[in-house]
Amino acid sequence: MKHVTVWYDGSCPLCAREIAVMKRLNRRGAVDFVNVGDQESASCPIDRRALLERLHAREGEGPILSGAPAFAAMWRALPLLRPLGLAARSPFVLRVLEALYLRFLRLRPPSMALLKARAITPG
């Protein structure tokens, strides 16, 4: 199994929650998580703005993957999610996952605003 590096936007509450779950599943340390949302100095193999727009990952020394292929690479490195990552090797499954990810990206800005507003509002 190849080591995977994942670049994510830790300033996004939804992304941070998702990655927190992935970190708990990363018992073997097969995935390195790099938060590019809070660190100007974070290791950025491509333009930082591009890294903040979508999840990116790299399996070993392979190409940098974006979106659903990046999730699939991460899942393949995590034993519990490996079957889903392997299923995503199918072009059809990967297209479906990418379509779902694109929907999430459209909902992300209003969801982030709502979550940040809730965090600020005393209650």
Results as ranks from 00 to 15, higher is better:
residue 106 R to D: 12
residue 92 F to V: 15
residue 22 M to T: 05
residue 108 R to A: 02
residue 61 E to P: 03
residue 37 G to V: 05
residue 115 L to V: 01
residue 107 L to T: 02
residue 88 A to G: 12
residue 91 P to Q: 07
residue 7 W to F: 01
residue 33 F to T: 04
residue 20 A to T: 14
residue 100 L to H: 02
residue 37 G to S: 03
residue 67 G to W: 13
residue 31 V to E: 08
residue 87 A to F: 04
residue 54 R to V: 02
residue 57 A to E: 00
residue 63 P to E: 15
residue 87 A to P: 06
residue 16 A to I: 00
residue 26 N to I: 05
residue 97 L to V: 02
residue 85 G to K: 10
residue 114 L to M: 10
residue 113 A to K: 08
residue 88 A to P: 13
residue 91 P to V: 07
residue 39 Q to K: 15
residue 47 D to G: 06
residue 25 L to P: 10
residue 28 R to N: 14
residue 117 A to S: 10
residue 32 D to H: 12
residue 99 A to C: 13
residue 34 V to C: 03
residue 28 R to L: 15
residue 75 W to P: 11
residue 46 I to P: 07
residue 43 S to R: 15
residue 59 E to H: 05
residue 10 G to V: 08
residue 32 D to W: 08
residue 12 C to T: 01
residue 68 A to H: 05
residue 49 R to H: 14
residue 122 P to W: 03
residue 102 L to S: 06
residue 86 L to A: 04
residue 19 I to R: 10
residue 43 S to F: 14
residue 113 A to N: 03
residue 40 E to Y: 11
residue 59 E to P: 09
residue 37 G to R: 03
residue 42 A to R: 07
residue 79 P to M: 06
residue 111 S to P: 05
residue 43 S to K: 14
residue 84 L to I: 08
residue 9 D to E: 01
residue 51 L to I: 06
residue 47 D to T: 03
residue 81 L to H: 11
residue 62 G to L: 07
residue 66 S to L: 13
residue 41 S to F: 14
residue 96 V to Q: 12
residue 112 M to A: 05
residue 51 L to S: 04
residue 104 F to G: 00
residue 69 P to R: 14
residue 38 D to F: 09
residue 96 V to E: 04
residue 123 G to T: 10
residue 85 G to C: 10
residue 17 R to G: 15
residue 79 P to S: 06
residue 58 R to P: 05
residue 46 I to F: 08
residue 56 H to I: 01
residue 40 E to G: 15
residue 104 F to P: 00
residue 115 L to D: 00
residue 31 V to D: 10
residue 109 P to G: 01
residue 94 L to Q: 15
residue 96 V to M: 12
residue 51 L to A: 07
residue 118 R to D: 11
residue 44 C to L: 03
residue 50 A to T: 10
residue 39 Q to I: 07
residue 37 G to M: 02
residue 93 V to Q: 05
residue 51 L to D: 04
residue 20 A to Q: 13
residue 84 L to S: 07
residue 12 C to F: 00
residue 45 P to F: 09
residue 36 V to D: 09
residue 99 A to D: 12
residue 99 A to E: 11
residue 112 M to Y: 00
residue 79 P to I: 04
residue 50 A to Y: 04
residue 69 P to W: 13
residue 18 E to M: 10
residue 88 A to S: 14
